[in-house]
Amino acid sequence: MSQVTLADWASMPRNRAEVADGVLVMPPSLGARHQLAVTRLAYWLDGRLPALAAVELLIAEEPLTLRVPDVVVTSLTDLNVPRVSPEDVRLVIEVLSEGTVRTDRVTKFSEYAEVGIEHYWIVDLDAPVSMVTYRLVDGEYENFGEHTGKVSLDFDGVPLTLDLNALTTRYAQRP
């Protein structure tokens, strides 16, 4: 099988597929709990910062590596884009699900660091719902905190208070 190029990718129907080093990767189906958590997180963040859910992130063009993070906070003012570049991304958030743990904690962890994405947060929906925040320091991600319950963070001068438990409850927090 030949490697997938960006031109090949552009002609394919859109779904949650990704490309890693030119190879098409089909992630596992996402459960309803995962989808609701991502929707709630993106909605909540978008009330404070420009956030997008499931937007394509072009890691490398040759060989093509294209990821679809759960949530991206961007520096772009026009959010009607088919994909973003690492230089436009301020934060990537991945919500762990069965079948993505290794990819999110190892593969994407190193890919995002290599392209200079400054902030990477990983949310684990298993009880108790938790989040680990990483920040790029000298080209490597450093753990900047492990959180459960209500989290108060300062993200580039924007104070954020996030109730992680609200990501998995019926009544999501509002901006």
Score class of each variant (00 low, 15 high):
Met1Lys: 14
Ser2Leu: 07
Ser2Thr: 14
Gln3Ser: 13
Gln3His: 02
Thr5Leu: 12
Asp8Phe: 04
Asp8Ala: 12
Ser11Trp: 07
Pro13Phe: 03
Arg14Asp: 14
Ala17Leu: 02
Glu18Thr: 12
Val19Leu: 06
Ala20Glu: 05
Leu24Tyr: 08
Pro27Ser: 11
Ser29Thr: 14
Leu30Met: 13
Ala32Met: 10
Gln35His: 07
Trp44Gly: 02
Arg48Glu: 06
Leu49Asp: 12
Pro50Asp: 10
Leu52Phe: 15
Ala54Glu: 11
Val55Asn: 12
Glu56Cys: 03
Ala60Ile: 04
Glu61Met: 02
Leu64Tyr: 10
Arg67Gln: 09
Arg67Trp: 08
Val68Lys: 09
Val72Cys: 14
Val72Ala: 05
Val73Phe: 06
Thr74Asn: 04
Thr77Glu: 15
Thr77Asp: 15
Asp78Pro: 01
Leu79Pro: 07
Asn80Ser: 12
Asn80Cys: 07
Pro82Met: 11
Pro82Arg: 09
Arg83Asp: 12
Arg83Ala: 12
Arg83His: 13
Arg83Thr: 02
Val84Gly: 05
Ser85Pro: 00
Pro86Cys: 11
Glu87Val: 09
Ile93Pro: 04
Glu94Ile: 08
Glu94Thr: 06
Val95Ala: 03
Val95His: 07
Val101Tyr: 10
Val101Met: 10
Asp104Tyr: 00
Arg105Asn: 12
Ser110Cys: 01
Tyr112Ala: 01
Ala113Pro: 00
Ala113Tyr: 08
Ala113Gly: 00
Glu114Cys: 07
Glu114Gln: 13
Ile117Leu: 04
Trp121Val: 08
Ile122Asp: 14
Ile122Arg: 01
Val123Asp: 05
Asp126Thr: 10
Ala127His: 09
Val129Ser: 03
Val129Met: 03
Thr133Trp: 14
Tyr134His: 12
Tyr134Arg: 05
Tyr134Met: 09
Asp138Leu: 03
Asp138Ala: 15
Gly139Ser: 05
Phe144Tyr: 13
Phe144Pro: 00
Gly145Leu: 11
Glu146Phe: 04
Thr148Met: 06
Gly149Cys: 02
Ser152Gly: 00
Asp154Gln: 09
Phe155Ser: 00
Phe155Cys: 03
Asp156Leu: 11
Asp156Val: 11
Leu160Pro: 06
Leu160Ile: 13
Thr168Phe: 07
Thr169Asn: 12
Tyr171His: 13
Ala172His: 09
Gln173Lys: 01
